[in-house]
């Protein structure tokens, strides 16, 4: 029971600082689940990350899987609820406030500031997570290749995930 409460409280706190969404939060989740609490090992974390990427739906599924690992279906629901409720309540009240700002300069400033913050957090998240889960030079090459393809083509991400899966099953990564 206490592990459920701890899961709920810690994830709830993360919800309010997750600028850039859950993807920006991954290193913090890693620290909590792997380094501090020893809920899962590095391999399981990176496998869950992969499953969450490949599954349809929102990208917070790594959190759901983490909860599942800790306490089954109840854990999965508690973890998902925890990551979503504080920010949901925040935006429920904030949306009218922000929509109501008359001064377009103020509105833009808030938007630009949040965007810059999110970019920094998302990029550092990608960097830190790459260091944890890429175990070979081939994996880094695939990561860099993915970035290049996204930049220079309009391929659907699902194709890239399929290519990753294929290269993986053939033993290249």
């Amino acid at each position: 029971m206490s592990i459920l409460i701890s899961l709920f409280l810690k994830l709830s706190a993360f919800s309010l600082i997750a600028f850039g969404g859950v993807n920006a939060l991954l290193p913090v989740l890693f620290n909590l689940a792997v380094t501090q609490e020893h809920w899962i090992d590095v391999q399981t974390f990176s496998d869950y990350f992969a499953i969450a990427q490949a599954a349809p739906g929102p990208n917070f599924m790594t959190v759901t899987l983490l909860g599942w690992h800790v306490y089954g279906v109840i854990g999965a629901l508690i973890a998902t609820l925890a990551i979503a409720w504080p920010s949901s309540i925040l935006i429920f009240y904030l949306q009218r406030l922000i929509m109501g700002i008359e001064d377009p300069l103020k509105k833009k400033s808030i938007q630009y500031a949040a965007a810059a913050l999110a970019i920094g957090l998302v990029l550092s998240s990608a960097w830190q997570i790459a260091l944890q889960i890429n175990q070979s030079m081939a994996a880094y090459a695939l990561t860099i290749g993915t970035i290049a393809i996204v930049f220079f083509t309009r391929w659907h991400p699902l194709y890239l995930i399929a290519i990753g899966a294929l290269l993986g099953v053939l033993g290249f990564i």
């Binding site: 992969a50 990427q53 995930i161 993986g168």
Partner: peptide, 29 residues
């Protein structure tokens, strides 16, 4: 081993996808 391989491949792509989101937003800056 094949499942492990698939997940390794997908997670490497997944990191790349997250980084690309960041870089695309960076381009706007």
């Amino acid at each position: 081993d094949s499942v492990k391989g698939v997940l390794r491949g997908i997670s490497a792509v997944g990191v790349g996808l997250i980084a690309s989101t960041g870089f695309k937003m960076l381009k706007d800056e």
